[in-house]
Amino acid sequence: MPKKILIIDDEPDVLIFLGTLLRKNGYEVCEAEDGVEGLKKVIDEKPDLVCLDLLMPEKTGIKMYHEMRKDEKLRSVPVIMVTGFSTSPIGYMDFKKFIHHRSIPAPEGYIEKPVNKEEFLKAVKEVVGE
């Protein structure tokens, strides 16, 4: 039974790329283009892992992550944050402190854009296994 991974990103390029990468490596993949759709799919598809983009329209990754962690059913679903922030022209921000604080635990992994295939697969493997 392959592990199911939910990719949430507003950029179709990223969805195609990461989806192809994960499928090629034997994972079952489902996709969502924003936080609203993503949250719905977390409940419907019951993925083993969520790869969540930090910056999205409608509902940002941070907001969605907080909602997942506050929901008792979804709290246990592991999350890897995919961020493009560290090199953003807005300037470096310690975004991690927005993601987790006292009542919200840290996500299971961080991956920075542009995504390195090997690093990404390694991180996924660490969280969900083969």
């Binding site: 493009g84 022209p89 854009k113 542009p114």
Partner: peptide
């Protein structure tokens, strides 16, 4: 750099796909 990096990511992703 950011813009170019994003484009490279897109290109890399495209090439991989």
């Amino acid at each position: 750099a950011h813009g170019i990096k994003n484009i490279i990511q897109g290109l890399e992703g495209g090439v991989y796909v």
